[in-house]
Write a protein that binds this DNA or RNA. Structure first.
Lengths: 208, 208
DNA sequence: GTCTATATGACGATAGAC
DNA sequence: GTCTATCGTCATATAGAC
């Protein structure tokens, strides 16, 4: 009885950092950069607040690493989807890219079904005028653009439509209009106008 | 010398409220709901912090009224654009709606050229899960949808494209990718892919 | 209609023990 | 690797004078 049990197990810092970043994605997503507190992130990760600060230096640094990780996961999901689309294609020359477009769209929906992931991305994009966070967000956006252009081989028009639809999905999801479609007639009609029944269903699940 | 000059002129409360809401649009836009402080709003409006609270009750109420005002201005701008488009049309039956689409798009760009207006709207849409702010934001979005459907007479496909393009413009503007196009090659190509030179120019001005 | 003063409660970050 | 204790700062909201 001469020593108390520590509240958290002693685990490697790398693993701990990953736990914290996952927790931070949820917390920053729901509360935004300013609204989130290091204490809430710490509690979501099951550790003490000073330890979060110890591992990341500052709250700003924690947000940057959270945003970077989310952007990296987005890119990785897109690349995996691309590989799948190409593996599924018939042996002959590549199709017109419609399979890729569809598969990328599905991959995006799966990712942003997690509200924390969706909102962390959006908060990042909205902080374009922050001198340190802005460049990180823009760089992520441009990486996606280059991937669509160079790796997916999208035409300019495909890129335009893909990005624009993605941003509309974000807004429908974040605002809760997707979820409201279950109760509200106009919201349901809006979902019909914009995306088919399939997507609407995913949006509904994700908004919940 | 028995009394000091008040720091602010004594003006009617209605006028004061409008000044404060205009200032709040800038401050909430740049710092977000949580990041903004009633003190910064007060200073932007040239009055004391307690007086802002006195007039609006709470910070939350101030944000709600700021968001409502911004949404109302958006609707008003759209209705004015619609009236213009119809006034400009030749006497015969209405065109296929392309003039309306173009005029509405211009009206939107003019509005979101003000960064505070743009970001206040986006912050609202991102707070869909807030029990009191969420419904206000969704209601605004649905009002826009109904206007497009009932007053502009858009087809479902027109509605889809108009909204999706709008959301992409928002993101390009908020993240600063539009402005970065002046320096960054890929950013410039992205702007080319998505919107023509005309829109890109406006986005550039607006990002500045 | 507007201010000053202030109570009260976070939050971020540091110090230092184990 | 992780904690407890705590300092300094800042924000919302109230009280009350003018």
């Amino acid at each position: 009885m001469s020593s108390m049990t520590p509240r958290s197990e002693r685990i490697p810092a790398d693993e701990r950092r990953e736990q914290i970043l996952a927790a931070a994605t949820t917390v920053f997503g729901e509360l935004g950069y300013a609204g989130a507190t290091t204490d809430r992130v710490a509690r979501a990760a099951g550790i003490s607040q000073p330890y979060v600060v110890r591992l990341f230096g500052t709250k700003e640094q924690l947000f940057i690493e959270t945003l970077r990780r989310t952007l990296a996961r987005l890119l990785a999901a897109f690349r995996a989807a691309l590989a799948e689309a190409d593996a599924g294609a018939d042996a002959g020359g590549d199709g017109d890219g419609e399979a890729r477009e569809a598969r990328l769209g599905e991959a995006y929906l799966e990712l942003v079904e997690d509200r924390g992931t969706l909102l962390t991305l959006l908060h990042g994009f909205m902080m374009g005028s922050d001198p340190v966070i802005g460049p990180v967000a823009r760089d992520g956006f441009l990486q996606v653009f280059r991937m669509l252009r160079d790796e997916a081989g999208f035409t300019p028009d495909q890129i335009h439509r893909f990005l624009a639809d993605g941003m509309l999905i974000n807004t429908l999801l974040a605002s809760g209009v997707g979820l409201a479609a279950k109760r509200d007639r106009d919201a349901a009609e809006l979902m019909d106008c914009t995306f088919g029944a399939h997507v609407a269903e995913v949006l509904e699940r994700a908004s919940a």
